[in-house]
Each structure stands twice: as structure tokens, then as C-alpha cells.
Amino acid sequence: MESLIELKDVYYRYQEQEDEDWVLENIDLEITAGEFIAIVGHNGSGKSTLAKLLNGILLPTQGEVRVGGKVTTEQEDLWQLRQQLGIVFQNPDNQLVANIVEEDVAFGPENLGLPSAEIRKRVDEALRLVGMTDFARAAPHKLSGGQKQRVAIAGVIAMRPDCLVFDEPTAMLDPQGRQEVVETVEHLNRQEGLTVIYITHFMEEIINADRILVFADGKVELAATPKELFTKVDKLRDLALDIPQITELAYQLSESGLDIDTNIFTSTELVEELCLLK
């Protein structure tokens, strides 16, 4: 299959810091339409910089970034590229523009210059997809963090992108809000077929990803499926990353001599494994 997003030999550093280390170094990446890619890494590993490179907010110092065949350095294609690849940012408060939910969701399509009726249709559809239809006329500051983040997602999908990038969308949310956002993301990927690039440092959120890329010091340190990755508990510890608690528990149980599988992500799976023990 043809790849939707392509990064070739990408290097990046901030202009004013010529003598400093690369923020991103030698990134080669291909992402196919419909994939759910998770990117993890501790602070300063360059994962957020990657998000900004994808839609041309930042331009690579070397190498090239292509989205749907378009290069991010091509100024003329930039707006079409940003319509194709939407980004949901970390702080839910700082990305909502209007003081009524549906007006905010309409902001993106309005920028695209669509006719009113089409915008109306897209806004209703986007709000339905994130389950916020009942709050269409509400004021953003009256919503919970998770709800605000869902509105932000609706605002991006109303532009009908092919790919959604989430830059730590749950970092500022409570557990309830995190759950809401993760469910919405998984739904959009599975049911609506949107390509998802999900940047986070919560391992629990990405157990359903197709591929996980582990970033460290601006490089891709590991690339694996969740099942493969979470068995490398020691390696992840070296990179200062958490693994899901249940997986960790299973790992420790197996270390201390219990005969159980360590490929476990949910408590139900663990209970089943434990019941199989003699």
C-alpha cells in the first residue's frame, strides 16, 4: 500500500542553536493510511517537534516530510496539507477559538471557505462523532477537560482530514477525561478509518496501537507492536518509560517464578492467566 506520510532522512534543530545537538536526528518513517501509530518518549525526546514538522509549522533542517505526496516546504500546498493533517494539542483551553462550541468546530471549515450549508453539515457530523452533540450551544469554559478536548477533536475532523496527530492530548486531563479522549481516538481510527499518530507518555493509552515508536534523544530507539514492546520491560526501564501496571505486574510475577504469559494488558487477561495456573 502507498504510504500517506513519509519522512526521509529528517534532521531538525532550532535555527539559533547551530552548535547544539539535533532535536531530531535521522528520522525515517513511513505511515500507511488507516494506521494507528503511537509515539512515546520522555520529555525532550523530540516527539512534539515531530508533530510540528508533520504539518509544516516547523520545517526540517535537512531531509523532507511528505504528507499525501505534498512536501511541507512547498508554501503553496501548505494549506491543503494542513487540511489533510489535523493536530490536536495538549492544552484543551488554548486551542478553542470561539465562545460557543459549534462556532468553534466551524472555525476550521470556515477557514477553508466552504459554503454555509456544507459547514453546518460537517459541524453536526463532527460533534456527533465525538459525542458532543448535546453541548453544541454550550460555552467552552463550562465544559470539563475531556469534553473540551473532544470539541477540539471535532474542530479538526470537521475539516475532513485523512490523518489526525495528537500531541499529548491527555497530559492535562483527569483519568475520566483521558478515558473519554482515548475512546474517541480509537473510535475514529477503527470506525472512521482515520490515520492516527498519537503522541503520549501514558503507555496504558496505546495498547491498541498498530505500531509504537519509542523516541529517545531525537532518535527512534525502538519500533515494535505493543505486544513485542511491553515484553522488553528492562529496555523500557532504561529509557525511563513506564509500562502499563498490569503488564508490569505480570512481568514481575513471571520473574518470581510463576508460569504466566507476560503479554498482558488488561486486568481481565491477567485474571484469566492466573486462573489457568495450577
Binding site: I57, W79, V97, F107, E110, S116
Partner: peptide, 19 residues
């Protein structure tokens, strides 16, 4: 906010429509 607006294709009032 400026970053988020740019990511959502905002480029001033030109060519912009309203819902």
C-alpha cells in the same frame, strides 16, 4: 492559540466563509 489557529488553516479573513 496562534499555533492551533494556524494548524486549522487560519490565514486571516481572506477567503473565509461563515457557518
Amino acid at each position: 492559540l496562534a499555533l492551533a489557529m494556524e494548524a486549522r488553516c487560519y490565514r486571516g479573513g481572506k477567503g473565509r466563509t461563515r457557518m
